[in-house]
């Protein structure tokens, strides 16, 4: 039970170490010495690389071992063993470069996509003949916006004359509303009884 917990803990530490969240010398030592952890370390990296789609075109699964082997051979044989190019320490440098190129390619393609999209959005709006923006909504009066009442219907207006008539009627009501608001004090007084005559042309001023 204790051992299971121990190894569980080590795996967690290893995982944290890979994410760059946990770094102490003990762990590094353990990883380099403990074969099981060592194997995990490699597998985790492989999984991560696969998930991130960063695998190099040629997969050399056991780079670390081959590098170690190469290093072991090095002091003995002064010239590097060139029988398998993958065994060269250089490979360790090439792989990150491949990775970087891949990332660069992704970044570049995103940038292209953004530039493309911006161009799309900035296309000047084509002006359709007959659509000058004035035929908005019910076309009653500039500055009117339909409100969000569900029953609202756009009433088809048969012809220009009827549209003008409708506009006139609506304008009349709006003007009257504002006049009545102004005259309300006057009317309220009249209801309270301070009453005399009113000149009608002043009550409904001519427009």
């Amino acid at each position: 039970m204790e051992r299971v917990n121990m190894s569980q803990q080590k795996h967690e530490q290893l995982s944290a170490f890979m994410d760059g969240e946990h770094a102490d010398q003990d762990l590094i030592k353990q990883i380099s010495q403990d074969g099981a952890l060592h194997g995990n370390w490699q597998r985790y990296h492989l999984v991560r690389a696969t998930l991130r789609n960063e695998l190099p075109p040629q997969i050399q699964l056991d780079i670390a071992t081959s590098v170690a082997a190469a290093l072991e051979h090095e002091p003995v044989i002064l010239a590097p063993n060139k029988s398998r190019w993958q065994q060269l320490p250089l490979v360790g440098n090439v792989i990150p470069m491949v990775k970087n190129v891949g990332q660069l390619a992704i970044a570049a393609s995103v940038a292209v996509a953004v530039v493309f999209a911006v161009q799309q959005y900035n296309q000047p709006v084509e002006i359709q003949p007959g659509n000058d923006g004035l035929g908005f909504g019910m076309g009653v009066q500039g500055g009117m916006s339909p409100v969000s009442l569900e029953q609202t219907q756009t009433v088809p207006v048969a012809n220009q004359y009827e549209l003008l008539e409708q506009r006139r009627r609506i304008n009349a009501l709006l003007i009257d509303h504002h006049q009545q608001m102004r005259l309300k004090q006057l009317q309220m007084q009249s209801q309270q009884g301070e009453v005399v005559e009113l000149e009608p042309e002043q009550e409904t001023p001519q427009q």
Binding site: G143, P146, V147, T152, Q153, E165, Q166
Partner: peptide, 10 residues
């Protein structure tokens, strides 16, 4: 001229 129901903001 029947207009039905109209609702908008001025």
């Amino acid at each position: 001229a029947t207009t039905g129901e109209q609702a908008f903001r001025v």
